[in-house]
Amino acid sequence: MFKNLPVLDSISSCFLIVVLIVLAIMALLCLLRSVLGPTVADRIIAVNMMSTMVIASIVILALLLEEPYLLDIALIYTLISFLAVVVLSQIYVGVYREHLAARRQKRMADENRQTAESKTDDEDAERGGTA
């Protein structure tokens, strides 16, 4: 990167490699959070965090290897990670709404059955009273 000064070149390469190692270790720890998290939102947040750290790693790698084409990959991965988070959240909102609608239908069916039973009981009581 710094062609004229070999000392600065080696120092900057070492520094960038250390930064890459730290980012990689942190990305693996995000995976731990995504496995542990009790709710769905925990896992979506962890995946988003890991994607952001990977984007930073790709950009630093593009600087280290002096290949500007890797920045296009980083841009596309940004788009993909945002799309993944939005789609996953909307899917789970839809799943929860279906769950709620099914439970409400079951409750209404139970209530209708109960009112039908009580109506027949009342009719029996009336007939028994008058007879």
Binding site: T39, A41, N48, S89
Partner: peptide, 17 residues
Amino acid sequence: FTSPVASHVVTNLEVMS
């Protein structure tokens, strides 16, 4: 631009469920 939108969508999911 997109990070606040993603946070809002995930929060919506959590509060609803």
